[in-house]
Amino acid sequence: MDSKQTGKPAPDQALNVGETLALIAAEDQYVRRRVHADPTLLFTVWGGAWLIGFGAAYLAHGPKPVIPGWLGAAVPAVLLAAAWIVSIGYALRVGRGVSGPSRTVAAMYGWSWTLGFGCLAVVNTTLIRHGLTSDNAAMLWSASALLLVGVLYLAGGMVWQDKVQYGLGAWSMVCAAGAVCAGVPGNFLVQSLAGGGGFLALAGYHRFRSTAAPGRRS
């Protein structure tokens, strides 16, 4: 008597159902990993860029400069640009697993970074040409760039309800404001230690959580 006569599934059919459920579960975990970037990586990238980049700027503008001025300007520029590229990749990765209006929002958010920094470069360059001192120009570039980063991350955190992005944006804005109050060259030291150190501390926290609870998402 076969399965059609008894009304019961054959053993191989039951096995296929189990394998299908396992495959669905595995695919779900894969999609989750693809859509949600690791906050440890994000905090480490920005923390390293701030700590090393603005640390180099401080060494070039301190009371007794340790490195050439051009190097103090080039190092943070290169590192922050690299962190910016990683941030765009983060946003694209978050939006990769969605479609429809959500995908459009992700694309608009990614382009807002390019538009924002392009316009910021025009504004800051024009202001400097109108007679800003070198110290004021240094504060303008560093504070305005970090303020823009903070606003963009706040927006991204609200759009995707991502507390990691939102916290990153809030901390960026606080450090930008504190750096301006410190003046030059103290602003570079504040951004290096408070900004970079704060991000690296958060990276360590998320790393500890993921290590302590491997099955738990950060």
Rank of each mutant, 00 (worst) to 15 (best):
Y30I: 11
G204T: 13
G198K: 00
Y166E: 09
L51S: 04
S142I: 12
F54V: 00
C119T: 15
T133W: 11
D28N: 13
G55D: 03
M173K: 04
G55S: 08
G110R: 11
L168M: 15
D135L: 03
A60N: 00
L127S: 07
S102F: 05
V184M: 10
L42F: 12
S142L: 13
L42C: 06
S87R: 08
T125L: 11
Q5G: 03
K4M: 07
V31E: 06
G97P: 02
L202D: 05
V66C: 08
S99A: 14
V75Q: 06
V45G: 02
G72Y: 12
S172F: 15
R93E: 09
H130W: 14
V75L: 13
T40G: 08
A137I: 04
G72T: 05
Y30A: 15
L42K: 05
A57Q: 05
T126M: 12
A77N: 13
N16G: 09
A179F: 13
L71Q: 08
S144M: 12
G186N: 02
V164P: 00
L79C: 14
V78A: 15
M173I: 15
G197E: 04
L41Y: 10
M139G: 02
C175E: 13
L154Q: 09
T6I: 03
A145R: 11
A81R: 07
V190M: 05
S3T: 09
R34N: 06
R129L: 14
A83R: 04
L148M: 14
F199P: 10
G116F: 02
T44H: 03
V122R: 07
I24H: 06
F188E: 01
G110L: 05
Q161E: 08
R93W: 03
P63A: 09
M1Q: 03
P68I: 01
A14H: 03
A74H: 04
A201E: 09
G97L: 02
Y90A: 14
A213Y: 13
G18P: 01
Q161V: 08
R33T: 11
Y153H: 12
R216P: 02
V98K: 01
A22M: 09
L132A: 02
A155I: 15
H206R: 14
I67T: 04
P101L: 09
V174L: 13
D162T: 02
A143G: 08
T114C: 06
Q13G: 01
G204F: 12
G62K: 07
A57V: 04
G72I: 07
D2Y: 00
G7E: 01
W46Y: 05
P9S: 07
E19F: 10
G18N: 06
